[in-house]
């Protein structure tokens, strides 16, 4: 089932168009920065953007910081929201189940497929950003890169920390995917699951700006999403990264648990 699911994902033109569209925003930013050389003042704008003018190798991280808060969650909500509800709407869900594909296996296959989509998207964004960053933006130090804290990083350390940041971004999207997958087992229309997930994200983002919501802020889905920036401080500031990772793990466990409990005992009527 997993192999079939991945085959369908990679074959689908929509997958690649979505990735291309997500990728176009950081590329546009790179072009604008490269042409104008006008960066945001330090401390404002998306993370890393002020640093990339002098050091283009940091641009993959800037690119991830650009797509992570909005573009990625929208794409993930749609793809994951479609997973079960989409099959139900097409009338293919019942035929998968009578083939038979066990319900738990179907759920796992859908989840793996969504996560491969996330990985693919992040990889494409990071790779494109590396190319555009080194071509269009500053390429000051060759051997060492400056951290956000001002110290320098070796090439090796930079690669390691970039991979860590990618993994962290994936985990953040895993939380979104779990919520969307969970809703997808409840509703009949894929759009309902996607919009429901986006509503959760918007609510979380909104509450974070509200001082009165301070007490629940540490438990909100999006609270620590951009904490991967802390991986580029020297020394690494682990506190928020660890909290963020644990929080996502809890969200994933809860929503996948609900999704499984619901789907495994659901009457498939469409």
């Amino acid at each position: 089932m997993i192999a079939v699911e991945l085959h369908q994902l990679l074959r689908s033109r929509r997958t690649w168009v979505t990735i291309l569209m997500i990728d176009s925003l950081p590329t546009l930013v790179a072009v604008l920065l490269g042409v104008t050389e006008v960066g945001p003042r330090p401390g404002t704008g998306p993370a890393f953007l002020s640093a990339v003018l002098t050091d283009g190798t940091l641009f993959p991280l800037a690119a991830i910081a650009i797509v992570l808060p909005l573009f990625m969650p929208i794409a993930v909500s749609i793809v994951a929201g479609e997973s079960i509800a989409g099959e139900a709407q097409q009338g293919t869900l019942r035929y998968l189940l009578v083939r038979p594909v066990a319900r738990t296996r179907l759920l796992v296959a859908k989840l793996v497929s969504v996560m491969v989509f996330v990985l693919l998207t992040l990889a494409v964004v990071a790779a494109t950003a590396y190319v555009t960053g080194t071509l269009l933006l500053g390429d000051a130090p060759v051997a060492a890169t400056t951290t956000v804290s001002g110290t320098t990083l070796t090439q090796q350390e930079l690669i390691l920390r970039t991979l860590l940041a990618l993994a962290y971004a994936m985990l953040s999207m895993f939380g979104v995917a779990s919520i969307a997958l969970c809703l997808s087992t409840f509703v009949d229309a894929p759009l309902g699951a996607a919009l429901g997930t986006l509503a959760v994200l918007v609510a979380s983002t909104l509450l974070l700006t509200l001082d009165a919501a301070d007490s629940i802020a540490p438990y909100l889905l999006t609270r620590y999403w951009l904490a991967f920036v802390d991986l580029f401080r020297d020394p690494i500031l682990w506190r928020d990264v660890v909290r963020g990772a644990l929080l996502q793990v809890v969200y994933v466990a809860v929503f996948l648990g609900i999704a499984w409990a619901n789907f495994a005992t659901k009457d498939v009527k469409d």
């Binding site: 192999a3 009338g91 035929y95 009578v98 083939r99 038979p100 594909v101």
Partner: peptide, 30 residues
């Protein structure tokens, strides 16, 4: 179920794939 063939209410197929590709997907799941 591997020994049972079923047509439940209306037929269901992936609309973007051809009939042959749909059958290949289902065969791969069997």
């Amino acid at each position: 179920l591997p020994e049972v063939g079923a047509l439940v209410e209306s037929p269901g197929a992936y609309p973007r794939l051809s009939g042959r590709a749909n059958l290949r997907v289902h065969d791969a799941l069997g």
